[in-house]
Nucleic acid binder design. Structure first.
Lengths: 245, 245
DNA sequence: TCGCCCCCGATTGTATAAAATTCAGTCTGT
DNA sequence: ACAGACTGAATTTTATACAATCGGGGGCGA
């Protein structure tokens, strides 16, 4: 209680979840490490009750494992896990974009299309980068909201916090040079919107899948060291390999 | 504290989640109703601490909504919601069965195939029904475990509790006649296994999709009254309809 | 009738204690 | 020396009491 609590009453748990998640994704804890309640409570200057609830929520999104009477242990986190997160996101959003075809008014689609087309040919600077990110969020949220399935939208939203935090952790890492050559995201968005306009669910899903898969590798490359990635890939080769070679 | 606590220390929250979920799925609470902490604590004979955590977990699986400073309110639950749950399950498990092709040893597949084939032509009685359910669980779990993605397996497992509880609620409703003519589940299982044997991911996914979609309608028919279903369908027509008719 | 304010109930967070469980180290009997 | 039981500290889990805060509803006045 030293400094004034700047956060709202009733939002402690959510803030804790975000804070702990960021710390975890920055790699400050080792996989398999136990997260002690009082330790976390002290570190984030709250009592243990909201910490426990935050851990329950973190266990719900599969970041920690809650072992009965033994507390929370951190699940492993590496390139492989980021890939898996993106895999689930791809599955969910592809289905959403399939469902959303025919559910968005043509004039909205035209508006989106012109926005993305304009941004695709605009000059690439910091402002462009920010604008691109904003429109990316808007497109994904629109698709989730209008897909017709409340639960599917919920599940997509559940992954948003994972994604946001990954993006934040990424920015911490590569605060250095912003090479806007990163990718032509807007062209990918455009492909999605045009497929929706054409009312072609499979084409839209394919465009969405491509869009998400493309971003994964860049994300991993920024988040981890090359040696980490190589080590992970070796491990993947051993554990993920098919039995019938 | 009247009777001795028969449940283990450290498993209160999980039991609470299951218990509350069952009560909710039995329709004993109205959608939008607030779930008061002390009320639940008294009803299930525990203190409020584990109840709070259970509500966080229930919010994590999208059954209740946690409104800041206002507590938990029950989300709506009807045929539509059951369909959406099954939709997500289908998405997840179809992807899993796609990935699992080529990851299961041929001898295991042969064993499964013979088991399902045998069960498909066996006499249908109570024993048959139980055996069929067991093998259903085994098949789905095998696919989730071996799909190569720890997170995908986790998400599938997360939906298992929803499914189990739905099945339990179903049994409460139609404790009357067991008409084993319900369906030829084993034939559907057989189709999945054979597609895996053939190493055809898309065929396997299609078989899985068919298997899950088939079970949905029977589940809904048993869980709700015809008038409820009709009312829900009317509502769906209004809210889910595409904009471009 | 409409808007404002205050009060009440409920949730949220804090603090503390007791009970249960894990785990590591020690002790004992053979 | 070693296997197995025992002990005790550390930690989680549950219970309980209490302060702080938020939201809604009722009363009050214009």
């Amino acid at each position: 209680m030293a400094s004034g609590n700047d956060i709202q009453h009733g939002a402690r748990r959510q803030k804790l979840v975000a804070d702990i998640l960021l710390v975890l994704f920055e790699g400050k804890f080792a996989p398999g490490q136990r997260l002690r309640l009082e330790h976390l409570a002290e570190q984030f200057e709250v009592s243990v009750t909201p910490v426990r609830e935050a851990l329950v929520e973190l266990a719900g999104i599969g970041v920690v494992e809650l072992q009965p009477n033994r507390g929370a242990v951190l699940r492993s986190f590496g390139p492989r896990q980021v890939e898996e997160i993106c895999q689930v996101r791809r599955i969910l959003e592809c289905e959403a974009v399939r469902s959303v075809c025919g559910r968005i008014a043509p004039f909205e689609l035209e508006l989106l299309e012109s926005q993305f087309a304009e941004l695709d040919t605009a000059k690439r600077n910091k402002r462009w980068s920010q604008k691109t990110r904003e429109q990316d969020s808007q497109l994904h949220e629109l698709i989730a909201e209008r897909c017709g399935s409340e639960r599917l939208a919920y599940e997509i939203g559940r992954y948003k916090i994972l994604f946001r935090t990954l993006r934040d952790a990424r920015h911490m890492r590569r605060s250095s040079r912003d090479n806007y050559a990163e990718m032509n995201e807007n062209a990918e968005h455009l492909a999605i919107v045009r497929a929706m306009s054409a009312g072609d669910p499979e084409k839209a899903a394919a465009a969405m899948a491509y869009h998400i898969e493309t971003s994964v590798q860049a994300l991993i490359a920024d988040l981890f060291d090359p040696q980490e990635i190589a080590a992970d890939r070796r491990e993947s080769f051993l554990t993920r390999q098919a039995v019938s070679s």
